[in-house]
Write a protein that binds this DNA or RNA. Structure first.
Lengths: 350, 350
DNA sequence: GATCCAGACTGAATCGATCCAGAAGAGGGG
DNA sequence: CCCCTCTTCTGGATCGATTCAGTCTGGATC
């Protein structure tokens, strides 16, 4: 067994307080004694104050929790999530904090337990499915947190973009190019895990808030040019991956008249859509747009909406570390930009 | 202030142990009493046992530390590191553990402190620069760990590849295509942060173990066809990024006779090299190879050595969670494969 | 020479739980 | 009716440190 602080104190012949001070408050004891303490500590193989015990006593941990809803390992396969995490990491390392990545089990009860058991000083919540349940648990613990995805409660710290307006901007671009018969592509659009071409009575039925807002934004633009919601084809992918996007788009084959454009809720899905269209040989005819502007989007020539991923993470962590005195400054709206590339073009005359 | 377990115990009129049992050992008390306890706890706003206090008493935390040497936020920009992390995350979530990502300050003393202060049950050490210093600190704490990068000490748990043989395999491929005048590209080849074309007296002078092994493997293959170490051009990039790789390769312009091939120590660097060569217009003439086989390598047609990234992470975590009874099984050597694509070809006759 | 003060160090209380030996009570078997 | 076992619950010790109100010492001040 490793020696404890007490053992060191006894070996040197001083009180535990003094040994503690030798580590954490050098100014509280003479340099000479401090040296002696640290020396014998080293000799005895004392590894320094136990982090857990210290945290308990001090009342803080030095780590922020990061919450992804989907399986943690999936988070890393999502380029945008990785960029967010990069930003959080950047702020955290500047602040001297560690990052605790907490895997959330699929069942709500398990997720709540995971949040309750996380030894952290606060949370960055990235896009959770059962967001409210999780936020309530965090509130229950009395820990500070910052959300990103859905619309925040008044008083909650938040950083995000205007999802709906951003989505509208790409859709307006396509509408401007003359597209009227279009498909909207999202992942897990409805809760029942149905995949492919879907009938969605109302955008409000879409459970995932980000997907919902983006679809609504797309719809807004088309409504403005006279295309109503029921006329839009809705495609649901089984997940936010390239393969899933491709699979969903293949469902369009069933349509008598294929759409002239596919608007995806993420770049990953959009790239998958391109994959499928290229494989089918008809990609010239169909415009595809994405959302996020991940690295691959550029080389693929994907028209998309750029949102600042790293900055989102950085601001979130920053907001957690030093909360603005003025609560109204606790909600940061980041800008988005429409990036037009080659994957979108005018409707082909046929 | 949030109520504590003690407060709940007093409110219900039972002992603290019983409340504790209500949460952690339901079989130790009657269902009826348990319900009563949990109910009043909920009413009082008790968030459940404090994770830190619990960890202290139980002696374990439920989190594994992951150590990257370079700045934590850089880790996420390295696709191979992300894949490793994905694997670790996968194993961790299966095991119900969290991941503590610990940023390591650049100065060794700070890094040691960071490792000492991490509240974890063990570490996965991914490619650390001052690896030995860090491993010693972990050993000092008496915590289990798994390393990946450099050659392991006997008895240490380890998962990795035969870096040197793998590197040799790509180099042999190029040598077989007739290449004799080649450049080797790594990041931070020498400790003095020199960039571009370098004079390196001996491979052994390269501080970073992975880079050293890979360069040595490249050299092995060329030595076998009569090209000695001093005849190889060594390029050092200022970091493991695409831009850095491109920058380093531009130094080749200074050469009277440019090499016919560039062998990079990572795909990221290789892609950067391709960028630079494409920009210069001469990429047809020069073969480029990478290392790792990241996702972008395929679409770029990059010849490379594939190593199983996710599996590396998964095995590392697995090795940490359930150590093999037989210590000799604690070192896992993963296979590598040469992947030949279009970025390598025969030496052009001129 | 009495007073004051800063600096060095101590001790007990505390952080918030979990663990374990054992007490109390209920039921069962002989 | 007594002994034994089981279940249910309790109290105190403990995990390993930090904190804070003091004590003690030696020297400066008037």
């Amino acid at each position: 067994m490793k020696p404890t602080l007490r053992a060191v104190a006894e070996a040197v012949g001083v009180s535990r307080s003094t040994v503690s001070n030798a580590y954490s408050r050098p100014d509280q004891l003479s340099a000479e004694l401090r040296r002696r303490i640290l020396d014998t500590a080293r000799q005895m193989g004392y590894p320094g104050p136990d982090p857990t015990a210290r945290s308990l006593r001090r009342g803080f941990v030095g780590a922020v929790g990061v919450l992804f809803t989907s399986r943690l390992s999936y988070a890393f396969t999502d380029p945008f999530a990785v960029r967010f995490l990069t930003g959080v990491a950047e702020a955290a390392e500047r602040h001297g904090s560690s990052l605790l990545l907490v895997p959330l089990p699929a069942e709500p009860a398990g997720a709540v337990k995971a949040v309750e058991n996380a030894a952290v000083d606060g949370f960055c919540v990235y896009c959770a499915g059962d967001e409210e349940g999780i936020l309530d648990t965090i509130r229950g613990r009395g820990l500070p947190f910052v959300t990103t995805s859905s619309r925040p409660r008044a008083g909650d710290r938040w950083v995000g973009i205007d999802e709906r307006a951003a989505a509208r901007s790409v859709a307006e671009h396509l509408a401007g190019l003359g597209h009227r018969r279009v498909a909207l592509l999202g992942d897990n659009v409805l809760p029942d895990a149905a995949t492919g071409l879907l009938r969605v009575a109302d955008v409000a039925d879409v459970p995932h808030p980000t997907t919902r807002e983006r679809l609504a934004g797309f719809a807004d633009a088309f409504a403005a040019v006279g295309v109503a919601w029921p006329e839009l084809a809705i495609l649901s992918a089984p997940g936010n991956t390239r393969a899933a996007g491709a699979a969903a788009v293949r469902a369009l084959d069933a349509l008598a008249e294929p759409p002239t454009a596919v608007l995806a809720c993420s770049d990953v899905l959009a790239l998958g859509a391109l994959d499928a269209l290229v494989a089918a040989g008809g990609h010239q005819a169909i415009s595809v747009t994405g959302f996020d502007d991940i690295a691959e989007a550029e080389s693929a020539g994907l028209t998309t909406v750029r949102q600042p991923g790293e900055e989102k993470g950085r601001s979130a962590a920053q907001l957690l570390f030093d909360p603005p005195a003025d609560a109204s400054a606790g909600q940061i709206l980041l800008p988005t930009t429409l990036i037009v590339r080659t994957s979108s073009g005018p409707v082909p005359r046929s």
